[in-house]
Design a protein around this nucleic acid. Structure first.
Lengths: 340, 340
DNA sequence: TCTGTTTTCGGAAACGCTTCCGAATCGCCG
DNA sequence: CGGCGATTCGGAAGCGTTTCCGAAAACAGA
């Protein structure tokens, strides 16, 4: 049976209030007394019971992190950023992964309640109005990463610009037949960035006077093997694209796999650009849009910890920078194609 | 201010004991009364405060998961397995990542205490005697995954046999100069599997009458870029190896990168085998030793939940199967080499 | 109608902590 | 030595649950 604060008090011959004061430095204590208490704590191997502390203080010292697409490397990088900050604080991390829509709803309903957590960090999910209502009503400090809602603090990317930029790069290389492989635009999780990246893709094409061709657009689940299927289909079109802009690195890797399946050499016959710059992207030599994932995790918790301190601050919306990283999956289109 | 059980009791015109009974089905309640209580709960949007519940029941409904090498894909796969089970239970997951030795110690000290968590799941870390003492003393139900200690429940692999098997495969292909790139044998985290895999490597060589050559052994931090450096060194030896057995896929990928740096073609001039079968391994076409990572997570929590129910069960030690998955980074050694 | 049994329920106590009011002690000055 | 502010500390109250003792009500049997 673990020791309690009363055991310590008795052992040290002081009152429980004094022990608590020593534990939390909450009021001055005579050095001699403090030493007695410390000795007793050590002797009894006492650790304050967090449940008691929580109940008494009304704080849980826990931050909930909600992560969809957990299979995807980018999320892990963010989480690492979060953990690096948390390790130096006295908060714990409660992890909630989301793989399906019902799960998403269940998690958002169950988690966003006072008493479970002190704050909520949500990756890549834009809350619905209903979710938001609940969050606001329960007054749970919340920060969104890679998602947006005007009434909640958020960190997001200028996806439109980043995607446009990437596609412009392909256009400048000479590509005209540029395909897009992405997430479902009306994705069930209610995210915006899917539409944003697609929007950027369209903008770049239009600006260059290239017609946006439906045949060159494919949507699928955010997952390498599905992207591979989509790409197989795409690359067997009679007039196949010379470049693919993928919504995510994960999907870009699927495209690379498909190209290999079909003996299409990259970048000679096909250029591929991804999005995220996950760690494998480096290995795969993938040209991609880098978002500083680790850093987004760091900034996200830091903001959240801040919001926990100052619950009534007006929502901040921070834009994170992106950068096109050029590696070896992009090149000018094959010459023949241009001649024909 | 959230409603409490007293508010509900007052609203429903019953006692708090009755409300609690309804909440937990802990004793029979007259249907009419129950309905009144349920109405009040709905009306007040009442959710029991977990801190109160925890304190009262002495259970935290939280499982701590300790994960070193979090950058490494294999750990994520395991964690996914864990999460898939937890999603259907009423436990929460508290995540503790470990990146350094001091952190390892801090985490094992702070986490393994009653009152924080109901159970502890430790990945890939063999506890020291001191850790163990603490764990036993505090009576925290614990399960090790990919680690071993006679006095704690564990899931582990027969690393010796798996490694021997992999190296035998290389030998059968005709290789004689087989290098090993691994973790530090005396690794600071106190793990066994490092030594075990090396042991398997040695056993295979000896059984084939090949002398174990120190020049062909490299140890480094478990990380792709460091492995790459080690491999660069190794592959520039005057009499360079024709095959490399790597301790992990992550390191095997580093070897592949080094080979590419040096324009050594794989598998024509160099064979590489990894260990784990992480998801990228498939993409990289890496021959590797598969351990069913997701499944190890599933089995691990299931065992832990069981141990939480029956704290005094004698320690179980489950061996997980492994399998050599042959892809395209292994081939017979170059013929010239054999002639010279 | 009375007694004994079963069903149903109220609320005090306990969980381990923090907070804070007020009491005790100390130190200083006149 | 007396008085007063400063310092130090004890422990009751309260946080929101669950548990459980025992009381009240309902019911059954004679």
């Amino acid at each position: 049976m673990p020791a309690t604060i009363h055991d310590v008090a008795k052992k040290a011959g002081v009152g429980i209030g004094t022990v608590s004061s020593v534990l939390n430095n909450s009021r001055p204590v005579n050095p001699a007394t403090r030493q007695k208490v410390l000795d007793a704590i050590k002797w009894l191997d006492f650790v304050p019971n967090p449940s008691g502390r929580r109940l008494s203080m009304g704080k849980t010292h826990t931050i909930g992190v909600v992560i969809p697409f957990f299979t995807i490397a980018s999320q892990i990088e963010r989480l690492r950023g979060v953990m690096s900050v948390i390790a130096g604080s006295d908060y714990d991390i409660s992890l909630y992964t989301v793989e399906t829509v019902p799960q998403r709803n269940k998690v958002l309903q169950r988690v966003a309640r006072r008493g479970h957590i002190d704050g909520l960090l949500i990756f890549s999910l834009s809350p619905t109005e209903e979710d938001l209502q609940r969050i606001k009503q329960r007054q749970v400090p919340t920060v969104l990463i890679e998602a947006y809602h005007p009434e909640v603090h958020s960190l997001s990317l200028d996806d439109v610009a980043a995607a446009r930029n990437a596609v412009e790069y392909l256009i400048n290389l000479g590509h005209r037949k540029i395909a897009y492989i992405g997430d479902y635009l009306e994705d069930p999780f209610g995210t915006y960035f899917s539409r944003n990246r697609f929007e950027g893709y369209c903008q770049a094409l239009k600006a260059a006077g290239i017609t946006v061709d439906k045949r060159y657009q494919r949507q699928g689940w955010l997952d390498r093997s599905e992207a591979r299927q989509l790409a197989l289909d795409l690359l067997q079109l009679p007039d196949r694209p010379t470049a693919v802009f993928a919504f995510s690195d994960e999907q870009a890797l699927g495209v690379l796999e498909a190209a290999r399946d079909l003996d299409i050499s990259v970048p000679q016959q096909l250029s591929v650009i991804g999005y995220d710059d996950i760690r494998i992207a480096h290995f795969a030599q993938l040209t991609t849009v880098r978002q500083n994932l680790f850093d987004s995790g760091v900034k996200g918790v830091e903001l959240l910890l801040n919001v926990i301190e100052h619950p009534n601050a007006t929502p901040q919306h921070i834009q994170l920078p992106t950068k096109l990283v050029i590696r070896h999956t992009t090149a000018p289109p094959p010459v023949m194609e241009n001649i024909l």
